[in-house]
Design a protein around this nucleic acid. Structure first.
Lengths: 217, 217
DNA sequence: TCGGAACCTGAATGTTGACTCATGTTTCAA
DNA sequence: TTGAAACATGAGTCAACATTCAGGTTCCGA
């Protein structure tokens, strides 16, 4: 929950993070508070003093741990990237094939956004506040996704597409928008049925089903 | 091109816009300059003085036409909404059926983003600067898109989906991400082949093609 | 030719908020 | 016990705007 991923977020300290337990605790409080505040008010409407108050530390303390306002923000985006990938990996672990994994992934993503509304907003705002971090977020995700598709295709579970990079971005875009639409704007809709409808589209496409008991036209 | 849509953007003037030709020209210059600046530097890094300098007018003149910085921004988003819908309508006009329209639409969207990079950024940033305007942008788009799908389904051109709202958002998301990926980040890739690969996914899905000359498995 | 409506202007105002720094306080190894 | 490394602090600095305003200038009908 508050493990903040594997690789330490880049903190101000030239090398290594806090040296003492007290320091690590303070860093964690600052990161958590920053997530809350940025998520709730957005980057520009969040003052450093909001964050330090949220963390229950003095204003100056912030600059003991971060070089700038932007730096915490970047750390949060990187952290979210790791968490998102982790959640996706977990949710699709039990799938029997890629097609099932797609459905599970879409549903898990919507639910992930729902339960991390604030932090997910941070990721999206990164597009404007820290474009590099934003691109990394999606590039890393896309790379992992591509590999999944390639393996699935070689197993014959999905078709050989014309261009997996394109497929991956289309799929990420679909999930992303569904995440906003049903994870944030309309968080009451049953996520399973949304995922069912969406994965039906992603798996079978828009084309009319070949008629089985009825001649077409 | 610079018609700025049908319904006037909401200007500061309580009722009606500029009364004279000079006024209309100044308003247009301000809107164009605002689009340039916001698109290039983003909302928060753009100062009103940047806009007025770009438009070649005095600082105070801005407030003759707009109540606030946010107001121009909203006007720009609304304008872009109209232009986007217009571009999509035009590009799919000649399609023989909905499946072809999808491919044309994806390609047209990528090209639209390419040729309006700056303004498209404005739309995306609206998510944080003017959330209402952002939601309107997509809601209006979604409504029109749904209607297209419903009609196509009744004509038998596409399958009856489980939930057209979900399909529409997935499709918009896919196009949106492809627009960013291939319209902004990598604007050199041939848009036709991206659209071809993407529409193949949206039309036929990920599922392996039913074997015609080879038994499955 | 005149008056007022429409339009233009940029210096001045006021606020906001990121970041610094000089001065503590706490921790802990020797 | 001690001193120095690590950590904490918040008043003060400073630059960056958004917005206002009081005083022009231009246009046009009568």
């Amino acid at each position: 929950m508050s493990q903040h991923s594997g690789s330490d977020p880049e903190v101000a300290e030239e090398r290594s993070g806090p040296k003492t337990e007290r320091g690590r605790r303070t860093l964690r409080r600052l990161l958590d508070a920053a997530g809350e505040e940025f998520g709730a008010r957005g980057y520009h409407d969040t003052a450093i003093s909001n964050i330090t108050q949220g963390a229950g530390v003095g204003l100056g303390t912030f600059y003991v741990y971060f070089k700038s306002k932007e730096e915490v923000f970047r750390a949060l985006v990187a952290d979210m990237g790791a968490r998102t990938r982790h959640a996706m990996t977990e949710s699709t672990r039990g799938a029997h094939d890629r097609l099932e994994a797609e459905r599970l992934g879409i549903q898990a993503f919507i639910e992930f956004v729902r339960s991390h509304k604030a932090l997910y907003r941070v990721v999206m705002e990164a597009q404007f506040v820290a474009p590099e971090a934003y691109r990394d977020y999606y590039r890393t995700f896309a790379a992992a996704y591509r590999q999944q598709l390639a393996q699935a295709a070689s197993r014959g579970e999905i078709s050989e597409g014309q261009d997996d990079e394109v497929r991956v971005w289309a799929l990420m875009g679909a999930s992303s928008f569904l995440g906003i639409r049903y994870g944030i704007w309309d968080a009451d809709t049953d996520s399973a049925s949304v995922a069912e409808a969406a994965s039906d589209l992603m798996i079978n496409g828009l084309a009319p089903r070949a008629a089985k008991d009825k001649a077409p036209k």
